[in-house]
Design a protein around this nucleic acid. Structure first.
Length: 376
RNA sequence: GGGGAGAUACCGAAGCGGUCAAACGGGGCAGACUGUAAAUCUGUUGGCUCAGCCUUCGGAGGUUCGAAUCCUCCUCUCCCCA
């Protein structure tokens, strides 16, 4: 995978670039909507494409493996054919589920035995198996199998876990090299830096991963509850070590503010459930700040959702109407809010890119952060 | 006209002598959410000068040390029969 950096910001580590996959080119910085089970919740594929202007979306190995299962996905001809999304897809390896389903799994050096959250059945994930599954799903970018360590996490555990993640990475790389894409287009493997909140472990991990010369590199194990300053510090440490000429992917981040600050540290790719999940729960990220549309104060506010927003729903619907839908539990409310939030995120990334290219990123970022992170 | 059942907080509904400002739902209000076990979860929901006090269980009296709970009358609702 070639990563072309068009412009480097002079006042920060931000860069504007693009990388190519067989399903299309992705311009960075980029936000990737999360479509765990092969669908970005509450949105149609055409809406994702045309209305949110997402460039690339996520799927999840663990979820898709459990349901609908590999037979169905393989019979469909891969996830792209199955769900109709023709752009690039990235699949998470299930490493996050090692963390989020911690009480339903058993981790060994060999791999992880999961108990399905759906029916309790047991399943064995190894680095090799996870690569195979992602080959079958047919994601353009597949993630190495890792352990996303929890927070807090003591040093000894983080160190042991890191060793396992690194061993698993070597096995992933080996198996990836020994296996082939199933559907005639190229797949790329991204390794993941771990190390919890320990600077030396993060550095060690970043160096270990940098040496693999992968198509792109990810930073995992952050935004799991640690203070934001720690997240920023770790991101910064790692970005300074990861290859400059490869895309850097900060997994699971985050708030609009987190995104802009991370771009300034040299991150190119993001994903997060926040814009979609919080949309369903009534939280809207707007050009004027964050609003909880469920609050009583919007009950009779017939002004547009976001006067200066960049999605058609922003001026098509009023705050009072969306409040009514969300409060009433109407599915349409979740759809409108999700579309709005995702478009806000993609717009933010487009704008960041333009500002980097225009040489005005730092200034824009600082004023933007203040504006969009306040509560209204 | 005769017989029966019932009136509890915003709504529904428990409670049937003290541990009741009153269970539980719903609704309301607010909060959380960061590689999605999440269209989920949490808190709160009579008032106040708030570790205490005041006013509340249809209304008015009464019994009792003590009443949402027992008695009397009244008002209103619902059901059955005529």
């Amino acid at each position: 995978m070639q990563f072309k950096i068009s412009v480097r910001d002079k006042e920060s580590k931000a860069r504007a670039g693009e990388f190519r996959t067989d399903h299309g080119t992705v311009k960075t910085p980029v936000f990737m909507p999360v479509g765990t089970a092969g669908a970005v919740k509450a949105l149609h594929i055409p809406e994702l494409e045309k209305d949110t202007r997402a460039q690339i979306i996520l799927g999840n190995t663990y979820h898709l493996y459990l349901r609908p299962g590999l037979e169905v996905i393989e019979a469909a001809g891969g996830l792209h054919k199955f769900n109709g999304w023709n752009g690039p897809i990235l699949t998470d390896s299930g490493g996050y589920q090692v963390y989020s389903l911690a009480h339903k799994r058993k981790l060994t050096e060999e791999g992880v035995v999961f108990q399905s959250h759906i029916d309790g059945s047991r399943h064995n994930f190894t680095p090799e198996r996870v690569i195979d599954i992602q080959r079958i799903i047919g994601a353009d970018i597949i993630m190495a199998f890792d352990e996303c360590t929890p927070y807090p996490c003591d040093y000894d555990y983080a160190k042991k876990s890191l060793k396992i993640t690194h061993d698993w990475l070597d096995r992933c790389i080996k198996h990836f090299g020994a296996s082939e894409a199933k559907y005639g287009y190229q797949q790329y493997l991204f390794p993941i830096v771990q190390g919890s909140v320990y600077k030396d472990l993060r550095r060690e991990s970043a160096e270990f991963i940098a040496a693999k010369n992968a198509a792109g590199n990810a930073i995992g194990g952050l935004s799991v509850g640690e203070p934001i300053e720690m997240m920023v510090k770790m991101t910064e440490e790692v970005c300074n070590i990861l290859p400059e000429n490869k895309p850097r992917y900060l997994m699971g981040v985050g708030t609009p503010e987190n995104l802009l600050e991370s771009i300034a540290l040299g991150v190119d790719m993001f994903d997060c459930v926040m814009p979609t999940r919080n949309a369903r729960h009534g939280m809207l990220f707007t050009s004027e700040g964050i609003i909880n549309i469920k609050n009583e104060k919007w009950k009779n506010d017939f002004s547009p959702l976001d006067e200066n927003g960049h999605s058609f729903v922003d001026r098509f619907y009023s705050k009072a109407y969306l409040r009514h839908l969300i409060v009433s539990g109407e599915m349409t409310g979740a759809m409108i809010a999700s579309l709005h939030n995702l478009r806000f995120y993609t717009w933010l990334m487009e704008e960041a890119r333009e500002k980097i290219i225009a040489g005005d990123f730092r200034h824009w970022k600082d004023s933007q952060v203040k504006k969009i992170s306040r509560r209204i």
